[in-house]
Structures are given as C-alpha cells and as structure tokens.
Design a protein around this nucleic acid. Structure first.
Lengths: 203, 203, 203, 203
DNA sequence: GTGTAATCGAGACGGTACGTCTCGTCTTCTG
DNA sequence: CAGAAGACGAGACGTACCGTCTCGATTACAC
C-alpha cells in the first residue's frame, strides 16, 4: 500500500517531519552564532535572535526554553563534525588528537562563543549545566577514559593513575583558556599541554 | 602626606565624610555573598543586593559599576586571607599548597559562587574579564611561575618545560571543576591533580 | 432529493460545496455564544471559538473576517425570530412592542453579549460599525419610522416632531442600559420608557 | 517670598507629591488622546502610548492597570471642565444645558474617542464598567435627578414620572449616537432631544 | 469500486502587543 | 551634603492571540 505518491520513504527514513521546521532551526542557530560573533555574547538576546532569523519569538520558545538551550543546540551542531578520533595509534596520540580537536573547535568561528555563553548561563541555570555535562562532557570523557584505560592495560601509562583526575587534567586547560582568555587558544597549546602532562614535570 | 590617607578631616568637617563608607561596603559585599548562596547566582541582582544591604541603588553604583564589580571585590575580600604560601619546602610542596588553597577557597561559603558569577559575567563584559586577569590571575600566576622557575633552577623540574603551559596545567583543573561542576571540589582532588601532573602519566 | 432551494447548481459547479457548511456555521455561532456567556466577552477569541467549535482557524477565517463578523452573524441569527411586530393596533402600541422586543432580545441568553461585543468592536473597526448600522439598525429604524409617520398622519402624534430624533429617543434607552449596565434590562423598563416618551414630562 | 522654596502649601493643599509624577501623567494622557484621534481607538496600545509619551511601559503600568484606566483618567481630565450647570432658570433649561454639555464634550477633540474606548473596554472588563458607573455616570445622574425632583416639586413636571427612567431617557440618546455613530453629535440634536422628551409625542 | 478534487482539522508560522522584570541614571527629601 | 528611597527611560523577558499558510485525512462525486 505504498502507491501513495505523497509518501515514498520505504525502508530507512525515520519519519521525515521536516516541513519548515528544519529551516527554522537552521535560521535560528545561524542567527545566534552570528550575533555572538558580532556583538559579543550579550548581543544574542532571544529578541535579537528572533529578529535576525526572521522567526517569531513564539516559535523560538516552542523549540528552546531559553537562550542557553539555543546555544547548546547551536554548539552541538557545530561540534558534531569534530568527532574524528583516530582508531589507530597509541593512546597518547589519540588523546592528543582529542584535546587538540576540542581546542580547534573552540578556536573556530562560532563554537567558542557558543560554549562560552553556555557555560556562563550554566552558572545560574541548572538545566543548562546538566545538559552540558550529560550531552557534551560525558560522552567525550567516556571516550577519553577508554583510551586512558587502554593505555594503562598496554603499559603505556602508569597503572596507579586516577582516571577521573587524569581526564580533568587533560581537558581542563582548554576550558581554562576559553573562559579566562589570558592566552590564545591554539593547536600548539593543546599539543604541548598533553605532552607536558604525559611526561610529567620531573626530570 | 598623611599616614592615613582615608581620614584627614581634623577639626571643622561637619559630619565625618568617611562615616559609613566602610560599613556600606561590608553590608553590600555581605549581602551579595548571601544572595548568591541562597538563591543561586541569578538571585544576586543589583536591586536585590541594594535591598538586602539596606543601601540605595545610587550608592551601589557609586562604588561599583556592575554586578561583576561587586562580585570581584567580594571575592577579593574573601580571597585576601588565602595567601598563605609556605616559604620553606620544595617547589612541588609549595605549588601543591597553592593549588589546594585555591580549591579550598572555592569550596568555602561565598568565594566559589562569587568567582563563578565573576567568570560568567566576564564572558560578556570585557572589563570584568580584564579585572579578573589583572587582579586575580596575574599575581597568583606570577608567584607560581617563580616557584616553577626555582624548581627548574634547583633541578626539581625538567629544564625544558614551558612555564606558561605548566601554569595552565596547574590551575586549570580547579576552575574546570568549579565551572562545570561534574565532580566535587575537594582538597584531595587538588593534591592528586598536582601529584599526577608532577609525576606524569608514563610508567 | 434536490428540492432543497439552497442548492441548484446544475451543470458547471465543480464539486458540491454545501457539504458541511451549515453544520460548521452552527457550531461556530453556538461556540461563540457559549464562550461569551461563560467567560465574558474577552473569552471569545477566534482561537477559542475555533477550538470549541471543533473547527480550524482556517475555516473560521474563510467565512468570517473577524470576531465582530462572527458576533454579527450570531446576533442576527438570534435576532431573526424577534421580528414579530403586530400589524394591528395603534402606532404607540406597535412602537412599544418593537422596543420591548429589542429589550427582551438583549436580555435573552446570547443576543445581549453578542450585541455588546459587536458594539465594542465597532468602536475600533469601521466595517463592524457599518454592518451594525446597515444590517441591524437601519431596517428596524425604517419600520419604526413608518409607524411614527403613520401615527402623525392619523393624528396620534404631534405633526411637528422630528422623526430621526424620535427614533433615537425610542431605541437609545435600551442600548444605554445594555452597554452601561447601571440598571437591569427588563420589559417593564422598555414599556415605561416608551410610555414616558409618548406622554412627555409636562403635566 | 517663601523661606522654604520646596514647600509652599500652607493649610489646605493635601500633600502635593507632584515630583515628576504630574508631568508623566500629563504626557501619557496627552499621548493617549492624540493616538486615539489619529489612528482610531485601536492605535492607542499601551506600547504606543508609552512610546509617544516618552515614558517607559513600567511607569505606565505603575499608574494605570490597563488601557481602559488610562482612557478613564484622560476622559475625566477632559470632562472636569464641563460641569457648568446654571443654578438659575427652570429645571427644563438646566437639564437641557446638562445634556447639551455632554454632547458638546463628546463632540470635542479627545473626550469622544476616550469615552468610546472606555465603554468598549467596559464590555469585557468589569473594573472599567464599574469605574464609569461610579465616577462618571452616578454623579451626573444625581445632579440631574435633583433637577427632575425639583421640577416635580415646583409643578414643572408631572408628579407620576419615574425618575430613573427619565434619567435614562435624557442621557441615552447622547451615548447612543456616540457609540453607534449613525448620525452626527450636535448641540442642536441634544436640545431637540430634550425638547421632544419634555413635550412628549402626543398632540 | 476507484480516482479526482474539493473541504476540512490541525497546527506551524511571522507578527504585534501584552504585562513583568532588571538595569543604570536621576531626583527628592531626610538626618 | 551624604545617603536612603525610589521614580524613571530603556528594553528584554516569556505569553497570548491574530491572521496566513501548509500539510494530510476525509469525503463526495465522476468514472
């Protein structure tokens, strides 16, 4: 009973609601990113986003409960492509790539401002904080934790290291520079940070 | 010159200008801290601070240009007592104390929320960002940098380490946990983090 | 079964539009009346009418351009039955019946609220104002004017009266009480008002 | 002149708060009147009034809970001067002046639109309806009722007339024409209406 | 019956205005 | 005259309803 010309998706398409919805989401997320780049994070008010995206505020609030939620989805969309971790190579190499790709992501056009906005809002809105932890931090930390454990198992790392603390040591510098801005965010910085950490400070 | 620059009026000033200034500052900073502890950072509006402190908004804006400035001074006052770094001992010990005292400060009653508010506001207000860097980060990083350089000179650390990056690696984990909140902020965490960093991950 | 006078299209009409039309109109007008009785005039939004009537807003706007238009038709439907003016009797009697029937109509369940909504909307929408005047006021005033002129011709009324002003004097009290609500709308009021007017105030 | 320039009211002025308050009220009421004259009643939104008056919406809502409240006060201010009823003369003359002055008021620049807006809003907001009745209708009806009773006592009117109904008959035509707009509002109309009513229709 | 063409429900959408909130400036009055 | 009180302009917030629109499901008639 699929002779119906209006509906052709046969086997793998989920449901394809995407009427105008997807266009709206794109316009909103694009507008939010632009505004943050242009006028700082403070310029990305819900009102300005709606105006820039040519979208009504009502529609905005239908999909996202707050500015932070817009930033979260915008960031996620930007970040989606940054999941290239090399399957081959040593644990150290893989971790270096992981941290460097985060640094590169934040240094890129919109993801940096979006994440800064996100973490700023997370300080006063618990839902945002939880969302960042659950949707962004946890999966990446899980991947890195596996790499660390693999490194331990293969003798690449010392067996007595604390995985959680090592994760913090790995990723923290990137967020530290992102949020405090005392030094620029570069790939070289990420590489050197991981190298220092792996080697330690002792002679 | 006057040994006490704050108070010069000797005989004829009608009603003591310096009068309540200090009380006002105390009341405001206390109120700001309380509000942040009670209702989250979002509760500490300038209006609420003024009301709680029994101070007019006019007076508030006379001394502090923004909410971030109040938080900055409040934080500085809380942090003033946390400058106990032991002159004796090895560089590693001193750095451990330094990082652990930062962790303890943030875990204490108001300094944590104040710093979180501060960094959140710094994302959209450059003056706040600059103030944090100049008044808070720089002096502490300078002290730590001296310790690191001393450790290198005395052979405690490898001679080829990058001081700036090492500073980031040292302090970043504390801010990372403060702002992301994925794990609690404890002294043990600070100690372990420095220990891991110093020793490195390799066997 | 095509004796139905509402549907005569013989050869070229495309596809029988009349289908549910009449049911829709009934449902909408009924819903509008109910909503006005229940939640005051403010409750009868186009959205609420559509929801209550189980009709889409699209359909609503197909038949009526505005809330006022719905109210107008609803009122007209309610008012259709109130055109019983006695052919026999004196002019005074006939006018009394005419005014009293208006009062009774407005005192009935939905016609009062509908007319109040209508006149309220007429203050800011000219089409509504015009529609009330043309479709409601004018025919009734024409009938009453005939009665007045007949009364003059037959010596029942003074020959020097101004017909337009007399019409205003006759009908105004009913609308005045309907809209200002300072006193209840009763048949006795209508009767007494006409009686006072006819007799005058002088002894 | 006065040793205290800030305070001159000596014995009978109530309290004179009038800081900037009075300027704000004037600006708002003026803007509301203008907007109603220019763009019809629908143009006088709270937002437009605030913008036109150079007043923030916050201030607007501090003094008036709704658009109707603004209209009420604007109307009252316009109407304040229209209370010239001649103490001398017959009851008929006084009533004629009273009704004619109402007609003249409504025909003047802003009072007409303001009252139309007011009565329109009264249809869906009870507070407005009550306010009109208490603050506008009742006092004027009371004055007119006294005149009617005086006329009865002095033999100018028939002793068996119903005062309430007579009040309705007197004032209703003015509101009827104001709200339905089927004929213009003129002094001559008001005079003729009272004359017809007093004399009656019978020969 | 089956196809064709319309109507209809549902509701997404861009807008406008609502009424509330905080900010940062400014004015008034009191101690 | 410093400071508490708070009025004020500005403008973002989140919500409601408007009137337009697109989508599928339903339905009536033609074939």
């Amino acid at each position: 009973m699929n002779e119906n010309p209006r509906e052709t998706r046969d086997r793998d398409e989920p449901a394809a609601p995407r009427r105008r919805t997807e266009q709206v989401r794109d316009a909103v997320l694009g507008a939010a990113g632009e505004l943050m780049l242009e006028g700082g994070l403070a310029a990305a008010t819900m009102e300005a986003i709606a105006a820039r995206a040519g979208v009504s505020k009502r529609t905005l609030y239908k999909y996202w409960p707050s500015r932070g939620a817009v930033a979260l989805e915008g960031f996620m969309r930007n970040a989606a492509s940054s999941w290239a971790l090399p399957d081959g190579g040593s644990a150290v190499e893989a971790l270096t790539v992981l941290v460097a790709s985060a640094a590169r992501l934040f240094a890129g056009t919109s993801a940096g401002p979006l994440m800064r906005s996100l973490i700023a809002d997370a300080q006063s809105q618990d839902e945002i904080a939880t969302a960042i932890r659950e949707q962004w931090l946890r999966p990446r930390r899980a991947v890195a934790a596996d790499l660390i454990r693999r490194g331990v198992a293969e003798g690449e790392f010392r067996p007595d290291i604390d995985v959680e603390i090592t994760l913090d040591l790995l990723f923290a510098p990137v967020y530290y520079r992102l949020l405090l801005g005392h030094e620029p965010m570069t790939d070289a910085f990420a590489d050197a940070a991981v190298a220092h950490l792996v080697t330690g400070l002792r002679p």
